[in-house]
């Protein structure tokens, strides 16, 4: 119960920071000063206090969607080991439930985009669902590959397996599955080269297009939900493939060291995202499937490599 409350607080508290860090890092690499690190917190606080304007065409789906997006992201986060190897909701679901919960959030996000009768929202929904559909096989294949090695889809068990010293970092299966999941991470969190989180050009937006009609509290929940989802997927990546430093026992020192290691790993992954976003241009929508099929092929190679290097 305490673990659950602590991890919820960590997800809520840390996710805007990661978003802010990536934004700041991008700005610095582009020779801009950029917004301060805590700008996302200020934004959320502002949205939460503002009144809302709701479209006259919108139904109750529009108002319910932000809550579902927010709660499913949190639930997914509670199934991932963050600081300690034991995830609080490990018993209620593993990797498959995590994928399912994120898909549930996406389902309502896309419905919320269609609801206000705007063409932009419809376009965003259509593209979001398409990209998710073609990212899903690569994601599942990569998850399957690591789950096979651990003999379980339970994320705690998977991290425990990758913690073992026999699990070499330079294992080709390891590297390839990481590469596949990294591409999927870019797609799922709406990063360049798939989507541009900073764009306000309607015709190229995907995630932002679905949020166009949201305001106030509902917008805050949507933005916060997106940040949490990003943190969850990043945590998944760093803790499955680089579990070093994660707390294996519940003592204050172990947890403290785990928190430090976790922060350091997140910083490294954020830097990688910043580098990718700064050095690449956004792809045309119909080039995105090529990138995601590369992810699928890489995940397939990861699977095959379990034969070659058992």
């Amino acid at each position: 119960m305490i673990a659950l409350a602590l991890q919820t607080l960590l997800l809520l508290g840390l996710s805007p920071l990661v978003t802010g860090a990536i934004r700041l890092g991008k700005a610095r690499l582009q020779n801009r000063r950029g917004p301060p690190l805590w700008q996302p917190y200020a934004d959320l606080a502002k949205f939460l206090r503002k009144d809302m304007v709701v479209s006259e065409h919108a139904s109750w789906i529009f108002s319910v969607a932000p809550y579902i997006v927010f709660v499913t992201a949190l639930l997914a986060g509670l199934m991932v080991p963050m600081v300690s190897v034991a995830a609080p909701l490990s018993l209620f679901g593993g990797a498959l439930a995590l994928v399912g919960l994120l898909a549930l959030g996406r389902f309502f996000l896309a419905l919320g985009g269609l609801d206000p009768a705007s063409a932009f929202g419809g376009m965003g929904s259509s593209r979001e669902m398409t990209i998710a559909a073609i990212a899903e096989p690569a994601m599942m294949l990569a998850i399957f590959t690591v789950a096979l090695a651990a003999g379980s889809t339970d994320l705690t068990r998977i991290v425990q397996t990758t913690l073992e010293p026999a699990w070499g970092l330079a294992n080709p299966m390891h590297v390839l599955a990481f590469a596949a999941l990294f591409i999927v991470l870019l797609a799922e969190t709406g990063r360049i080269p798939i989507d541009n989180p900073a764009t306000h050009l309607e015709l190229t937006m995907i995630h932002e297009a679905m949020l166009l009609e949201y305001s106030g509290r509902q917008l805050a929940l949507m933005e916060w939900g997106a940040s949490i989802k990003q943190l969850v997927l990043m945590t998944l990546l760093v803790n499955i493939f680089f579990p070093a430093g994660i707390a294996t026992e519940i003592t204050p020192t172990a947890l403290g060291a785990g928190l430090l290691a976790y922060a350091a790993k997140l910083l490294l992954l954020s830097t990688a995202i910043v580098l990718v976003e700064t050095t690449n241009a956004k792809l045309r929508l119909f080039r995105v499937p090529d990138l995601l099929s590369i992810a699928f092929a890489v995940a397939l190679l990861a699977l095959f490599s379990t034969f070659l290097f058992p």
Binding site: H57, S59, I61, V99, A103, R106, F107, A110, L111, L114, D115, P116, A117, G122, S125, S126, M129, T130, A132, A133, I134, A135, E136, P137, M139, M140, L141
Partner: peptide, 21 residues
């Protein structure tokens, strides 16, 4: 996984176009 994600896309369309907006 592909089937499931495409089915979700299809039902966003079926529900969204039929009942929303």
């Amino acid at each position: 996984a592909l089937t499931g994600a495409l089915a979700a896309a299809c039902f966003v369309k079926a529900f969204g176009i039929t009942f929303l907006a």
